[in-house]
Design a protein around this nucleic acid. Sequence first.
DNA 1: CTGACTGTTTGCGCTGGCGCAAATTGGAGG
DNA 2: CCTCCAATTTGCGCCAGCGCAAACAGTCAG
Lengths: 232, 232
Amino acid sequence: MDYYPDFDFFARTELLQGAPPDALRFLQASAGRRRLAAGDILFQQGDRTTSLFVVIAGRLRASQMAQDGQQIIIRYIGPGELAGYAALVGSDGHPGTVTAVDDSHLIGWTSAIIRQIMERYPVVAINAVALLGRRYHEMQIRVRELSTERVERRIGHTLLRLAHQSGRRTARGIEIAFPLSRRDLAEMVGTTLHTVSRTLSAWEERGIVSCGRCRVVLCKPHALVAIADEEE
Amino acid sequence: MDYYPDFDFFARTELLQGAPPDALRFLQASAGRRRLAAGDILFQQGDRTTSLFVVIAGRLRASQMAQDGQQIIIRYIGPGELAGYAALVGSDGHPGTVTAVDDSHLIGWTSAIIRQIMERYPVVAINAVALLGRRYHEMQIRVRELSTERVERRIGHTLLRLAHQSGRRTARGIEIAFPLSRRDLAEMVGTTLHTVSRTLSAWEERGIVSCGRCRVVLCKPHALVAIADEEE
DNA sequence: CTGACTGTTTGCGCTGGCGCAAATTGGAGG
DNA sequence: CCTCCAATTTGCGCCAGCGCAAACAGTCAG
C-alpha cells in the first residue's frame, strides 16, 4: 500500500516547489514509485542514467568510490530531497552509488520526462539550478575544511551538519536520526574509523556526545560548536 | 576599444549555447562590459550579489577564505565560462572572491535580467543546470582526492586538470597558460607551498616538468599520469 | 645599477593521525 | 541461551608532510 504524494508534498520538495498545478498533475500521472529496505541499492556508480527520484520517506546515502576501492560519502538524502541528479544535468551515467540506510519510499521520473518538464515549466529548471548551487556550495565548504582543518574539527563540523539536517530531539540531546557507523562518519570526514572512534571516545568522556553502535547523540552541541569553530 | 561578442561567441559559452536569436539579441542589448587588469578583483566573498559574468578573454581565479584567513582556490575560470554563479542560484552574497590572474574582458548581466532570461528561455536554465552539475561533480572528485590520496598524486591530478583546461603546446611540453605560483598550486591541492616546491623540484630532476617563477610546463604528461594513477 | 620585494628552494625537527593488530562488545538469528 | 558476525575500542610504532627558518633568485621601480 503506497502513500500517494499530494500537492502539499510536492510543494515541500526542493525540486518541485512552486510548480503550477497542471505540471504537478502531469508529474503525478507520470511518476513511478519505488520502495527500498535499509541496505538496498537505488542505483550504482556508472549505471546508465534512467531516472531521477524524490525521497518521500526514509533516508539514503550517496557515495563515490575510487578505482582502488576507497570510498567516500558525498551526502545523505532525506525526505523532499532529490536522488539522481545525473538525470537533471543530462549525464550518461550516475557519478555515484545511492543506497538506502533506512527503509525508504521514493517517487521517480524518467530523464526524458524531467527534461520535458524543465523545458515546459521553467520554475522547475530554476529550482534545479538553486538546488545544484546549494550542493556545489556545500562541497566547496567541504573542500575547504579538508584542506585547512584538523580531523577533530572536521568531525565536529560534520556532526553538527548532520544534526542540523536530520537531528531528532531526545531527552539526552540531539540524536542523528539514522544509522551512522564510525566508518560512515570517517568516510564523510576524510579520515579512518579508528580516528573517529578515538575522537568520539574522548568526547564521550567529556559528556559532549553519547554514542552506541551506529548511533550518535549530541549532548552538548554548544561544546561541539566551540571545538569546531575555536580560533587558533 | 572593446570587442563586441557576436552570436558565434555566445554559442561557445557554456551558459548561452543553443539560446534562440531573440534571446541573444536581448542579452546583447542588456549586457554590461568589464575589463580587468591582472590582479584586479571582480567581486569579493560576501559582496552582495548583483551580476553574473561570462569571460570573453583572459583568466580569473575563484577562491574562498575561512575566518582564520586560510585560503583555498575553488577553480580557474577561462573564456566562455561563467563567473558569479550566485546570481544564477538566487543567493544573496557571493560565496567566494573572483580575481583576474591575467588581463581579462568580461560581459555581464544583472541578477534580475538573468532570472528573466531563464524564465523566458528554458534552454538557458537547462544550460545552467548542466554547468552547475559539472562543477558539483568536479568538487566531488576533489573531495575524494583530498580524502584518499597522498599529496604527490593530488598535485599530479591538479596539474593534469589545469593542463587540460588551459594548456598551451610549446616546444618543451604543455605549459599552464597563466601565472600559477607554488602557493596557488598549494591552495588548489590542499597542502603547503613548501611541499609543492619540493615535489616540483623532484619532478624537474626527473625531467617530468620544467618550471620557473609562476610557470609550470609538463614535459612528460604520461609520466605524470603514471604518478597520479599508479596502483598500490 | 641598486634596492626592495616577492616568489622559490631547501634543511631540520616534530607530530597528527594512519596502519596494523588484537581484544571487546552488542545484536541478530537460530 | 548460544553462536556468529559486524562494529567498536585501544595500544603501539611509524612516517608523510607540516611549520619554522634561512638562504637565494628573479623582477621591477626609480
